[in-house]
Amino acid sequence: MEKRREKRTVRGIITSNKKIAENLFLMTIKEKWLVTKSKAGQFVNVKVAENSTDPLLRIPLGIHQIKKEGISLLYKVVGRGTKILSSKQAKGSIDVLGPLGTPFDISNTDKNTMVIVISGGHGLAPLFALSEELRRKKHHVEFFMGARTGEHLVRDKELKKIGVIVHKVTDDGSCGFKGCVTDAVEKVLAAQGKKYAKKQIFACGPLPMIKAVAAIAAREKIPAQVTRDEYMACGIGACRGCAVRTKEGIKLACTDGPVFDAAILEW
């Protein structure tokens, strides 16, 4: 059973909403309660249209940063809802339900752990907050950032600034390693893996990438926490839309997840 966590609908003030790459936006929201409750790996459900029934449902977005005054969200414009979200102006307000879901568990990592963080596309959203948290504890973080092209690689400089080792990977080779992000992980693991007695993987990205990460983790016997992104209506466990098949039975991406132990997932 998932732990019941405190959640609320709150009204935040949008302090900025900027395009940072093709179809990728970064929104910062000033709202103090969310700051005190949010943890890396959790998400919020934002309302894009108020006093309107179309779009109807909220949009679930991973928490990208947890700062002093508020949180930030990194999102990709994929449909009508996110398109409307991207047009919102600074100083406007936004209705946010959260924080939702179960966060990453970093209780088993320490300064001697090789922490391998793997993102695919805008899957880097929650991994940024995680990296910040790990770096505050001075942990060794190797971030494998996968994107279509070099132009779609974002936030790498900010990660480097806080001491994260960033491995850039692009589909077309326009920046960094060419190929799948998981190929780059395998290469680095083969070269440097033996230096670390303890390793831990955290990953967020499209399902094929998550599957490949789970396969590497199983083969190399590295514990892995991966996220599952499924269509959901409510985000709080009521609609049961975001079902995930696991060795422990049906679980929900919204409350049991989005972070799961890769070893229990069924595909």
């Binding site: 449902l57 499924e230 269509y231 609609c239 079902a243 995930v244 039975g249």
Partner: peptide, 10 residues
């Protein structure tokens, strides 16, 4: 167990 995903769509 219910039906296969996706199970909800707007």
């Amino acid at each position: 167990d219910g039906n296969p995903a996706p199970r909800v769509v707007e």
